[in-house]
């Protein structure tokens, strides 16, 4: 009889990262490395996270609360979507330095994790295995967005920001 392989339980903060699709394929070591790179920020309802046209430097992960993605200065009429806890946005900033396509605002008081492009680039040079797993998940995520684009509007495609 084969004994079931015991998995060591991850600490709570690493389990939270593991639950995110972007980091789902990372092992405990990779999660610890990413955890050391992430910054935590608290935003109040209505506070602007980034503006349309601003050069993107980072990807944002929603730990708690909700984030509204909308056209610049139009939180009601220009609303595109809302990102709940567990989701992420601003991912194109990890790949290029183009301006943000839409504005992001806190729809409720929220806590976000922030991953900087420079940190991911540094990780690519120093721990390519962990970085490539993140990059693969990011590519899958963008692929899903592209497939969905066939059945959705241009604004929703812009969610890639």
């Amino acid at each position: 009889m084969r004994l079931p392989r015991l998995k060591s339980a991850l600490p709570k903060h690493l389990s939270r990262l593991k639950a995110l699709s972007l980091f789902a394929t990372l092992d405990a070591k990779g999660l610890r490395i990413v955890d050391g790179l992430l910054h935590e920020r608290d935003y109040l309802e209505g506070e602007v996270i980034f503006d349309e046209g601003e050069v993107g430097e980072a990807l944002y992960i929603v730990y708690q609360g909700k984030v509204l993605i909308c056209r610049q200065g139009q939180p009601d009429s220009g609303r595109v979507t809302e990102i709940d806890a567990g989701g992420f946005f601003g991912e194109l900033a990890l790949l290029d330095q183009l301006p943000r396509a839409l504005q992001a605002r806190a729809a409720s008081a929220c806590r976000l994790g922030v991953l900087f492009r420079a940190d991911l680039q540094n990780l690519l040079e120093t721990d390519a295995r962990t970085a490539s797993r993140i990059a693969l998940q990011l590519a899958r995520h963008l692929g899903r967005r592209l497939r969905a684009a066939r059945t959705t509007t241009v604004e929703e495609l812009d969610l890639c920001l």
Binding site: V48, I49, D119
Partner: peptide
């Protein structure tokens, strides 16, 4: 929060 991205960019 408003200066966060710019400041981190500065540190990098």
């Amino acid at each position: 929060n408003a200066f966060f991205e710019k400041t981190l960019y500065l540190l990098h």
